[in-house]
Amino acid sequence: MINARKRLLETTVMFAIPVVALWMLDDISVDDAKFFPKYICYGMLILASINALQLWLYLNRIRPISWPTFLRWSLPFKGGPVPFPVRRVGMALGLMTVYVFAMETVGFYLSGFLFFLLSLLVLDPAKPTPAGAGRKAVNALIFMAVVYVLFSVMLGVVIPSGIAL
């Protein structure tokens, strides 16, 4: 079944991007530099219209949503398809955002270790136990240690140091 709300959102975004881009191009003085992006935006608008047209034509017929190849699983999961785990994805998203923005201030290795540990704790569907948490911390430490040896010691690369290591 076609999810109408999702399709509407998709169509709006597809039209919005070229419009915003064209608006941003207006400030530019050199005409030649506007040429390429301008025609790309026009092309995108045409494609967005075709897409909207296709959606409209098929709106009243049952048409399965086709997932892109690269995410398609060749074999089904045990127990059939499950509902989308909103909470888990949200937590992962939050953790990652904090990690990315805190990395520079806190330092690569420390923030990496904390991120690894926290994601293991938070995203695990099983109930947390002290022993389990301890084991996870050890895993996190081992991983960061390997990365440390490989990158900082052997290759001597530069990483943001921040407060701690």
Binding site: A92, F116, L120, V147, V158, I159, P160
Partner: peptide, 27 residues
């Protein structure tokens, strides 16, 4: 999967940073 998620994220963040030594790239 759970280990993959954490490990791959860290490697990706590192990989993006190291190309031009720029935090902006990571963002």
């Amino acid at each position: 999967n759970i280990f993959m998620v954490a490990a791959v994220t860290i490697l990706c963040v590192y990989g993006s940073y190291s190309v031009q030594n720029s935090m902006d790239d990571v963002i």
